[in-house]
């Protein structure tokens, strides 16, 4: 009881602080631009946030969600250029916001976007077919090294996170894969379950069903620490039982994909603060926590300088890979 009262006080205080900083407030409907097609990871992320905002009435104005997933999401980010300075266009995406302009000739630059926040980090795991002979990630990598360019690594899209990770993996271990790009994590998962590729690096959420069914098996997670223990996924194992790749002897410290929110450049700082505040509140709701746990992402709210630092670091890492692979277009 006392705790609940305390929380209510906290909310009240937050509300008053908000009222004190009463800067920018939306005065007409807001458009949430999704940089993926309906049903994609970014789409779920956006619609989850939209439904939480609606439920808690965090924004009074109506919200319209529109999918602009063309060109791997570039179509959505282009809104930042065509609607420069418009605080009513909020763009939802991943790290491809700053990575896409490297690999394709696009009409926008990263500087056309104003960072607002990142709400979650999606994890990557190394998966093999359940009946594959490899017990550990190390064993699998050794097998790949023994026969270079015969093992197939499936992934979604080309020159995107999956292929970047595959490239990093090849560089640090010397194991050479054939990378096969498919359309989306679901298709990749099925290809592995059917034995048409040897491994993939799907997000937990994309392959949990197949793991449960004993079709595929994770070897390691590309995260600095093990995933939080939840209920067991299979009879014997849960997420926390998967070693980190570093533990498993693969020197890749971390590879995570941030789920990010942007505004067009030139929007008033007050608007940036407003959305930052709203998203912060979203990230503190029980619904959001539940969504994060269910989809096995890592909930981490980044904004302002912490976000900038993360982006700079991620950008540098990926850029090195792109340069090495010769993907960068001039």
């Amino acid at each position: 009881m006392a705790r609940r009262f305390g929380m209510a006080l906290g909310f009240l205080a937050a509300g008053m602080a908000g009222a004190a900083a009463q800067g920018w407030q939306p005065s007409k409907p807001i458009e949430f631009v999704v940089t993926s097609s309906p049903g994609g990871g970014t789409d779920n992320f956006t619609r989850m946030i939209q439904s939480i905002i609606m439920k808690y009435k965090l924004i009074e104005q109506p919200i319209v969600v529109s999918n602009k997933g063309g060109g791997s999401g570039a179509e959505g980010y282009l809104v930042s250029k065509t609607a420069a300075g418009d605080p009513y266009k909020v763009i939802f995406g991943t790290n491809n916001a700053y990575l896409l302009p490297y690999v394709a000739k696009l009409g926008y630059k990263f500087s056309d976007l104003t960072p607002v926040a990142a709400l979650a980090l999606d994890e990557f795991l190394l998966w093999v077919k359940a009946d594959a002979p490899y017990k550990t990630a190390k064993e699998y990598i050794e097998a790949v090294k023994a026969k270079p360019e015969t093992y197939k690594m499936g992934g979604s899209q080309s020159k995107d996170t999956d292929q970047t990770l595959t490239s990093i993996l090849s560089t640090v271990t010397g194991a050479k894969f054939i990378y096969v790009p498919f359309q989306g994590g679901g298709a990749v998962g099925t290809q592995l379950a059917g034995g048409h590729v040897n491994s993939h690096t799907n997000n937990p959420n994309e392959s949990i069903g197949q793991w449960k069914a004993g079709q595929v098996r994770p070897l390691c997670v590309f995260s600095p620490a093990r995933l939080p223990a939840g209920p067991k996924v299979t009879e014997t194992q849960g997420w926390a039982d998967i070693p980190t790749c570093k533990e498993a002897g693969i020197p890749v410290e971390r590879f995570q994909m941030p789920r990010t929110v942007w505004l067009p450049a030139g929007t008033p700082p007050g608007a940036v603060q407003f959305y930052e505040g709203v998203l912060k509140k979203v990230s503190e709701t029980p619904e959001w926590q539940e969504y994060i746990t269910r989809t096995v992402q890592t909930g981490q709210f980044l904004s302002g300088d912490s976000l900038k630092a993360f982006v700079a670091n991620d950008d540098k890492l990926s850029r090195e890979v792109f340069e090495r692979e010769g993907w960068i277009v001039k």
């Binding site: 409907p29 458009e31 109506p62 319209v64 969600v65 529109s66």
Partner: peptide, 8 residues
Amino acid sequence: IERTFRVA
């Protein structure tokens, strides 16, 4: 379109 289906 805009009110019922929420399409901009």
